[in-house]
Design a protein around this nucleic acid. Structure first.
Lengths: 222, 222
DNA sequence: GACTGTGAAGCCATTCACAGCT
DNA sequence: AGCTGTGAATGGCTTCACAGTC
């Protein structure tokens, strides 16, 4: 549950799950815009994102009355509103720490740039990687991180180093005045309260699938 | 909520969130084993994974009594039990479709191989990529998928193609007799009911962070 | 004495069902 | 007539608090 500070939307509580769905809706709306669709109703957003229609309406209604009763929602207007709610009506500077396979893939990921995330730099400790280019992005030595942050402030740090280095990297990011961290390392990292951390675990999803497959086709272990 | 078929664990319902946490616990336990720790109590598992201690105990208790009252849990024994619950006491064959940056990174991701996931092959449509090697893994043309599946059955398909090709790929995977799909494309894909699909959205997590940052530092749009 | 296992309570999120508009 | 917005009902998950066991 996320509590709002009194302000733009009054004092209000919104489930975190709602924000996650808003992100899904916005991507669906983007696709509708590309197709030239101008109106949409909640049931379509629902089936396009795998959600219940009442849920879609409730999620949107937390932030205002964006629809027209009896009609639906104007796609472009709703899209603009949702993007603003998500804080995506501006550019965000992102730094990736760890230029392994995953770090490189995320640095080049079009899904980020297309939504206003600017990868400002990629850092690594491995001498053989430093100086290499990822398109027009150079891999920098991690010793330059604080210097870089001074000259090029960034808001988000993405951690893609092995688990045992994750806390060290987090500490460095804190010193770099980062505001939020996306952590792909499978460990809990400690940071000051005012910094938001979101852990992404890539294997968790696969393992949920193997659990379910195991149920259907149990291999009894004696 | 996941319902169990009558069998190994009786007829029982377990929250999906429990399975996701079991996956986190198992990784934490793995780290304890590497450190040579033999006993652990729920409060330690809790702080090591960012969860409440009662929750840890309840999650484990769905599947049996693995602990000793007054003492705690034997790390190795608990680890083995959790891995078995997750269906990770065997190898799973995985195929990745889409050899872009993300597909390549996932194919080489050590976090998968270290947990018993064997990447059996990587497929793509791009002629310039086909035949390239990712370590000892060759990129194959997608036209060979069904053939490949005949000779080398696999359980899981990972979709890392652009959104507009995702459904086509899913259809092919269904024909390949896949049992579960991990979908990184930001669209809902339709498959028969008996095939489990899990959608992973990489931008959702970043956007939850920007939402929260926007709350703290609102940029009012007039 | 200490920690697990668990019923009960509390809390949060989703879904229903219909009033309110256009 | 049709679809949104929303209070009320439901359902599910998490946390509490303590009985049970070593």
């Amino acid at each position: 549950m996320i509590s709002f500070p009194p302000g733009e939307y009054g004092t209000l509580k919104v489930p975190e799950a709602t924000i996650i769905r808003l992100s899904l809706y916005s991507r669906f709306l983007q696709q509708l815009i590309e197709k030239g669709v101008t109106m949409v109703m909640s049931a379509e957003i629902a089936s396009g994102t795998g959600v219940n229609a009442a849920q879609v309406r409730k999620d949107l209604a937390y932030f205002g009355e964006f629809g027209l009763r009896g009609v639906g929602y104007y796609v472009k207007e709703l899209y603009r509103n949702v993007m603003t709610i998500l804080g995506l009506n501006r550019e965000w500077n992102v730094v990736v720490i760890g230029a392994g396979n995953l770090g490189q893939a995320l640095s080049l990921y079009r899904g980020f740039s297309s939504r206003g995330f600017k990868i400002a730099a990629v850092f690594d400790t491995d001498d053989s990687k430093i100086g290499q280019k990822l398109h027009d992005l150079e891999i920098l030595p991690i010793s330059k991180l604080l210097d870089f942050a001074d000259k090029n402030p960034f808001e988000v740090g993405v951690i893609t180093v092995p688990a045992k280095f994750a806390q060290k990297v987090a500490d460095l990011l804190v010193l770099s005045k980062v505001k939020a961290i996306l952590n792909f390392a499978p460990v809990v990292i400690a940071v000051p309260d005012e910094i938001d951390v979101r852990n992404v675990d890539l294997t968790v999803n696969l393992e949920l699938l193997t659990f379910k497959m195991g149920l259907k086709n149990p291999q009894h272990t004696p």
